[in-house]
Design a protein around this nucleic acid. Structure first.
Length: 286
DNA sequence: AAGAGGACCAACCGCGCGATT
DNA sequence: TAATCGCGCGGTTGGTCCTCT
């Protein structure tokens, strides 16, 4: 039963890496580049599991790692991103150049959790802990559960027609039967990719409220992209785009309402002004 | 000075997912 | 369609260092 082991455990080293192992790994990757981690240890002359090599490289040896203490700005960004994404450490790390998911995860568990607790904020829900009546408004694009599961009391407390549009983000993204997930937490099920690029010259994506599904969006005055591509789901089943370098042609099926809702949620979470999240890098999960 | 306990962080483990066969 | 492979992710562990008593 179960998967076959990723490597021959009987003949691999475990535990802390030696300087010599580090040097071998660095030399090999410099010469051959990343990739094919499974065969790397043997090729590099390392008695290590491929996964172990990958982890060592990504978390410790990569030349672009920042290392050192987190700044106050990084702290706040992590908190914001965590409130938006939850424990999606790799996605959070993607917005912090030079930081790794493992590093951020450790930092969260050792510093930020405590910091939020000392502020009286629940690090899981990002809500004040001393207000038991505080109800969480679920924002979900994920797979769904019974709508009737929604707490009746919650419905009473939050009149649906009185909510600002920024909180009514419970749009269905998929075309699956109408079942809605009941989440204790914020669960946007978003993926951000590719990694942040400091020299990114692209203008911010502009959303047009009420656009039809699959419609093209004017990014600036010259570039036109479809919603699916702007979300990074080009070539998925949701997108039949082709591009000639000037923009996308044809359509994606992600609904404009869903996109508008994401934008609303984004603003709702207070991330709009820091200009660090870019919708072109957001990818919808199914 | 020494031991206990906590904090920190590198590394491991198991699992999920997409690609390939 | 199912099985397999390889990668990447999040949770957890264990070793080391630091602080307190």
């Amino acid at each position: 039963m179960g998967r076959s082991p990723c490597c021959e455990k009987a003949h691999t080293n475990k535990g802390a890496w030696t300087k010599e192992e580090d040097e071998r790994l660095i030399a090999y990757i410099r010469a051959h580049g990343e990739g094919c981690w499974r065969s790397l240890p043997k090729a590099a002359g390392l008695l290590r599991c491929g996964k172990s090599c990958r982890l060592r490289w990504i978390n410790y040896l990569r030349p672009d790692l920042k290392r050192g203490n987190f700044t106050e700005e990084e702290d706040e960004l992590i908190i914001k991103l965590h409130s938006l994404l939850g424990n999606k450490w790799s996605l959070i790390a993607g917005r912090l150049p030079g930081r790794t998911d493992n590093e951020i995860k450790n930092y969260w568990n050792t510093h930020i959790r405590r910091k939020l607790l000392s502020r009286g904020i629940d690090p899981t829900t990002h809500r004040p802990m001393d207000d038991p009546k505080e109800k969480v408004t679920t924002i979900s694009f994920g797979p769904a559960q019974e709508e009737e599961d929604v707490d009746d009391e919650k419905k009473k407390m939050i009149p649906q027609d009185s909510l600002p549009t920024t909180t009514t983000v419970k749009q269905e993204y998929s075309t699956s039967p109408v079942r809605r997930e009941r989440c204790p937490d914020l669960n946007l099920e978003l993926r951000i990719s590719p990694p942040y690029q400091p020299n990114n010259q692209q203008p911010p994506l502009t959303f047009t409220a009420g656009s039809a599904p699959g419609s093209l969006v004017n990014v600036d005055n010259t570039t036109v992209v479809c919603f699916a591509c702007s979300l990074g789901i080009q070539n998925s089943k949701d997108c039949t785009c082709t591009t000639n370098g000037n923009g996308c042609y044809a359509t994606g099926s992600a609904t404009a309402n869903a996109i508008t809702s994401i934008a609303a949620g984004y603003d709702f979470l207070g991330l709009r002004n820091n200009a660090l999240l870019d919708y072109r890098n957001l990818e919808m999960m199914n």
